[in-house]
């Protein structure tokens, strides 16, 4: 998780909204990638969950975008995707072939925690009150997301205790 080229002290509300949108964008894309990886590795339950996360992130992204357009129309954007690194997107390392839905959910949970930490860490530097309010809101939003994932986790039947690795084929040489 990292961010580059952003001066939090002088972050404007427009830029803060754009930043938040990009964070959701990045997460949405990563979940999409994970879902594809799971499809390719025939891990359908995890793929299904990652698609659910794509939807969540997209929805949140759309809400933020609506607010941005309402306030600032299509005024040019000055923050870019190149400035943010895995803020809410799960790390690539979090995915595994044949991962159980439980593991997939834990990966998502970890990235929501990561995003929460990001907003918390940014808060002290913020000067603009509107921006502060937005970040607080986003921070709380991440808590909501964590709850959401926890709800999904709770729905899972108990773990069989068996490892998938005991059933799957060996990797194939190329």
């Amino acid at each position: 998780m990292a961010i580059q080229g952003i001066d939090f002290a002088n972050l404007s509300l427009k830029d803060a909204l754009d930043l938040a949108i990009l964070v959701e964008d990045e997460a949405q894309e990563r979940y999409e990638e994970f879902a594809t990886q799971m499809d390719q590795h025939r891990t359908p339950d995890a793929a299904k969950f990652f698609r659910y996360m794509v939807e969540n992130e997209a929805k949140h992204g759309r809400e933020l975008l609506a607010r941005r357009i309402q306030r600032f129309g299509d005024a040019p954007r000055s923050v870019t995707r190149a400035m943010i690194f895995d803020i809410e997107a799960p790390d690539y390392d979090a995915a595994r072939a044949f991962m159980s839905p439980r593991k997939a959910m834990k990966a998502a949970l970890a990235s929501e925690v990561k995003a929460y930490d990001f907003f918390v860490a940014a808060l002290p530097a913020l000067k603009d009150t509107e921006v502060r309010a937005l970040f607080e809101e986003l921070r709380d939003e991440e808590l909501e997301h964590q709850k959401l994932v926890n709800v999904e986790l709770a729905k899972l039947p108990p773990d069989s205790g068996l490892s998938d690795e005991d059933f799957v084929d060996e990797p194939a040489a190329q």
């Binding site: 990886q37 190149a82 595994r96």
Partner: peptide, 18 residues
């Protein structure tokens, strides 16, 4: 943008690969 350099081919890599 970074995405301009991303192709449509789906990686064969194991999920989690560095």
């Amino acid at each position: 943008q970074p995405k301009d350099y991303k192709s449509d081919l789906k990686p064969i890599w194991c999920p989690g690969c560095g």
